[in-house]
């Protein structure tokens, strides 16, 4: 597995942690790789009240890209099951979009990561 792929796996793993923590039981993951970037999309139906968590999630995923921090810390993303490192995923991401439909409870997280 290439270094880039390995990092994307960790990012997705972290996002899965988040969706599980929101009570999602059916999650769709879609990854699209292009020459210079990855598009990562996760969609799940949250079963818990996530409004408070959502605000925090949005803020952390929109953290500035930090390639300097990523280089040493990326392996922590998705590495443990009791704590999420969303800010780290945010630092590994160039663009983040989070949509939540309050009626259906469907949460969509879309990330763009430049290589």
């Amino acid at each position: 597995m290439s270094r880039e792929h390995e990092r994307v796996v960790h990012m997705v793993s972290e996002l899965l942690n988040v969706l599980f923590s929101m009570g999602a039981s059916k999650i769709d993951v879609r990854i699209l790789e292009e020459a210079d970037r990855f598009f990562i999309s996760l969609q799940g139906k949250a079963c818990l009240d996530i409004r408070q968590k959502l605000k925090k999630t949005r803020r952390l995923l929109r953290m500035n890209r930090s390639r300097e921090m990523e280089e040493e810390l990326w392996s922590l993303a998705g590495s443990v099951d009791y704590d999420t490192e969303l800010s780290l995923v945010g630092m590994m991401t160039d663009e983040a979009e989070i949509r939540y439909d309050e009626e259906t409870g469907v949460l969509v997280i879309e990330l763009l990561r430049k290589k």
Partner: peptide, 19 residues
């Protein structure tokens, strides 16, 4: 040092700040 930095982080899972 750089490759070891990322690898060793997994041992302590970020609980040791002086990685």
């Amino acid at each position: 040092v750089p490759p070891l930095g990322a690898a060793m982080m997994r041992f302590h899972q970020g609980f040791n700040l002086y990685n």
